Computed example of a mutant assay.
Amino acid sequence: MKVLSLSMATEQSSFQDRIERIEKKAKETASKAPPPRVESIWQRLGYPASFIGAFFLGIFAAFLTRYIQYHLVGVPGSGQLGVQEIIGIGLASCAGFFVSFFLKDRQKEFASCVTAGVLLTTFTYHNLVWEYPDVFERVYGKDWVEFVEKLTEPSSLYVFGNVIKLS
């Protein structure tokens, strides 16, 4: 009986030693762990706001490519209308992808927002020309504004040469 009791005491002692080692290891690990991040409201809003920024980047890229196209080529000819839109979408998308390349860990999400901005601007850009012709005459020129107004209608979508009335 005494041997059994001694054996149980040894096992109990061994078990307690293991528990103490585990607790000690847990405390050491906890002390090495970085403190929890304390984010401000601005840091938490930064991620969704960056999607909005990417969308506006797409809009800006479409505006910029149209501006560059007009000043390099001028008003497109009658057979170049669909080609101009495809080139505009391609150039603006490339610009958006190039910028999103620098945001490597979030590239896919931002690229889709940039592309949405590019497409929306490409197909609805003319509505701003109808709304603010004087501004666009100063930026692009009177011949370009007349060309856009002759080709499209206000409050519409212009998709590859087809005018889709919205109202």
Rank of each mutant, 00 (worst) to 15 (best):
M1W: 04
S5P: 01
L6Y: 04
L6S: 11
M8R: 14
A9N: 07
A9W: 03
T10D: 06
E11L: 11
S13N: 05
S14K: 04
F15I: 04
Q16M: 09
D17I: 01
D17S: 14
D17L: 09
R18H: 08
R18F: 07
R18Y: 08
I19L: 15
E20M: 01
R21G: 04
K24P: 00
T29R: 13
A33C: 07
A33K: 14
P34G: 04
P35N: 07
R37Q: 12
E39K: 00
S40C: 05
W42H: 09
R44Y: 08
L45V: 06
G46H: 09
A49E: 01
S50K: 00
S50W: 00
S50T: 07
F55C: 04
L57Q: 00
L57F: 10
G58M: 08
I59Y: 05
A61W: 07
A61K: 00
A62L: 02
A62P: 01
L64W: 07
L64I: 07
L64H: 08
T65Q: 07
T65G: 03
Y67F: 15
Y70I: 11
Y70H: 15
H71I: 04
L72Y: 09
V75W: 00
P76D: 01
S78Q: 08
G79K: 12
G79S: 15
Q84W: 05
E85Y: 11
E85L: 05
I86T: 11
I86A: 12
I87W: 12
I89Y: 09
A92T: 11
A92W: 06
C94F: 12
A95Q: 03
G96L: 03
G96I: 06
F98Y: 14
S100V: 08
F102G: 13
F102C: 05
K104P: 02
D105T: 06
D105E: 13
R106A: 12
Q107N: 08
Q107H: 12
K108D: 10
K108T: 15
E109G: 15
A111Q: 10
S112L: 14
S112W: 09
V114S: 06
V114C: 13
T115C: 08
A116W: 09
G117S: 11
V118W: 02
L119S: 04
L120V: 10
F123G: 02
T124L: 10
H126A: 02
N127Q: 08
N127P: 02
L128C: 01
Y132A: 14
V135T: 09
V135R: 04
Y140K: 02
Y140W: 04
G141I: 02
K142S: 15
K142F: 08
D143I: 03
D143L: 00
F147N: 01
E149P: 05
T152W: 14
E153S: 15
E153H: 14
P154W: 07
S156Y: 12
L157I: 06
F160H: 07
N162A: 11
N162M: 04
V163S: 08
I164K: 09
K165T: 14
L166I: 15
